[in-house]
């Protein structure tokens, strides 16, 4: 388990990194936290010609808050996110999800950008980005672009990010914090810290009467990418929510969820199992979100 040969360059700026990537002609790889790339190198499943180390770029680290969004720079460590009061306050769903990401040691190195760029379909951070309508900023040596999370993920370990592009930051739009929002995150894995078999994220917004005015429900591990369960979101919005309607709304929606999901079978679980627990985890996440949102009204 030793890497194949590669060259190494330490980039000092975003521009320099993108220049190295451009010069790499598609054979370069970005080294961020290395928590996925390094194992893939040592198993020779990744064989870049050059590694572009972005850990020294100060512009790629940090969490910033402006009027419309929270911007998290790509190389911000997962541990820093977990300890961030800004994340806790504005992005509680991300904070909840992060407790399921690996272990403290991997979070000390692992970055938000690395997790998004790696795009494991069962990974927590892509799921949260999708649920929260995040936008992902990509830089090329000559240009940059901002892609909505809904369009970013293409398939298992595949994104729209070109090999010559650098993921520089992710923007989470701010919800108008009017104390009616709740979030919930549930996942199932055999061992704590493993990739989820299935994970579910929910964010629910209620009006003053407790009716649902907005809902974002996303599932991971049920398809080649994390998915938004739009049918369920629609149902929640149109039915409103009261104590006695939630259960029936869910029961109506569950067959729809199951129909659309397309998980894989592997050594850890069958597709059928993933489908069945997806429904229950979604329900639990929604329940938590609603409970929290209701608490926020009172």
């Amino acid at each position: 388990m030793k890497s194949a040969p590669f060259d190494y360059v330490l980039a000092k700026s975003i521009y320099e990194a993108t220049r190295y990537l451009a010069e790499g002609e598609g054979e370069a790889a970005v080294l961020a936290g290395g928590q996925t790339l390094m194992p893939m190198l040592s198993m020779r499943m990744a064989r870049p010609s050059v590694l572009v180390d972005i850990n020294g770029i100060t512009d790629l680290s940090g969490i910033e808050e402006n009027n419309t969004a929270i911007e998290i720079k790509a190389c911000t460590r997962q541990t820093e996110l977990l300890n961030s009061p800004i994340v806790k306050y504005h992005l509680p769903l991300l904070a909840q999800a992060l407790t399921f990401v690996g272990h403290s040691q991997t979070r000390n190195r692992g970055t938000i950008g690395g997790s998004l760029a790696h795009a494991d379909p069962a990974s927590e951070i892509p799921l949260v980005a999708l649920a929260l309508d995040a936008e992902i900023c990509l830089s090329h040596v000559e240009s940059s672009r901002q892609i909505p999370a809904t369009e970013f993920f293409l398939g298992p370990m595949m994104t729209v990010c070109e090999p010559t592009e650098l993921l520089v930051s992710v923007h989470f739009p701010l919800t108008k914090k009017e104390s009616r929002v709740g979030t919930g995150f549930h996942e199932m894995s055999e061992r704590h810290g493993d990739f989820a078999l299935v994970a579910a994220a929910a964010k629910i917004e209620l009006d003053n009467k407790g009716s649902c005015i907005d809902a974002a429900i996303a599932l991971g591990g049920v398809d080649g990418t994390p998915v938004r369960v739009t049918a369920l979101e629609k149902k929640l919005r149109s039915n409103g929510i009261s104590d006695n309607t939630l259960e029936s709304a869910m029961e109506l929606a569950i067959p729809e969820i199951l129909e659309d999901l397309n998980p894989v079978s592997d050594q850890h679980a069958t597709a059928d199992y993933r489908k069945r627990i997806a429904a229950i985890l979604a329900l639990r996440a929604i329940n938590d979100a609603i409970t929290e949102a209701k608490g926020n009204i009172a």
């Binding site: 199932m188 055999e190 078999l197 850890h268 679980a269 069958t270 059928d272 199992y273 069945r276 627990i277």
Partner: peptide, 17 residues
């Protein structure tokens, strides 16, 4: 006794994962 096997028994009556 993986979770998926137990769940299969409980909710599906089968032992297939």
């Amino acid at each position: 006794m993986r979770s998926s096997i137990i769940e299969g028994l409980l909710n599906n009556g089968s032992t297939s994962q």
